[in-house]
Write a protein that binds this DNA or RNA. Sequence first.
DNA 1: GCCCAGGGAATCG
DNA 2: CGATTCCATGGG
Length: 287
Amino acid sequence: MEYIQKDEKIIMKNFDSFNIEEILECGQCFRFEKIENMHYKIIAYGKVLNIKQLDNQVEFYPCNKEDFENIWIDYFDLKTDYKKIKDSLKNDEIVKKAIEYAEGIRILNQEPFECLISFIISQNNRIPMIKQVIKNISAKYGEQAGEDYIFPSLEQLKKATPEELKLCKTGFRDKYILDAVENIDKGNINLQELFDMPSEKAKEELLKIKGVGTKVADCVLLFSLKKNDVFPTDVWVKRVMEYFYFEEKDTPIKEIHNFAKEKWGDLAGYAQQYLFYYARSEKIGVK
DNA sequence: GCCCAGGGAATCG
DNA sequence: CGATTCCATGGG
């Protein structure tokens, strides 16, 4: 991979395994907007960024070299060798098919606080609605950046009341958001420390929060805390796993986790993303 | 009107 | 432990 700065743009060339549509539409991230085909706008790390993918290059703008190196290389996981990961996972014929369906998926490294609140909102909710609620919360508590709003910091979200959150369409999840904010504010949970803990220990910490269960915790671990061995199992992943590996029989999440851990080990999280995107796009296992 | 959504808490047994 | 029920809201 190479990149150069040209005016207000970073232009990336000679990259591998990068498809902006697949990266953003694979359900890991909610703060993006499709401008046109292969042109998206994202909001993260206090910035608004356009990503426009052409045949042999990807443009990031507005963006300078400093931001690209300090923020976006890690955000887009550009130091990770996906070719190697995919080659290893392709030993499994089913995952191989899922990978070939979306070779350009990458797992983003999102901000832990935003990721945590976002996946609390995701529970028993639909993706367009989740995006709307996060947008509402950002507009109410976050800082404005052009026509957009940055997701609020802990200090900003501390000011929220249950009544206000409900006006943002959080539904019954208002108290869960506030419990997360309170736990972090009081130092009961330190998100930064979770980076240095093994997955199981970090997960225990997240589970202290009311409204955070196995699935939400696993998403936060995988999408913001670099824990690539976890296997978030939502309705789609459960369906696709049962369909391909458990003879379409109803299978407990625990059993699916054990199966994934044994089969894919430290790459389970990547396998999950390929399977999720494939299952949701092709509606695998839906009756 | 009915069903369900990238689930989890509360309350059973 | 596992199984049920409820939770707000909106779209199909």
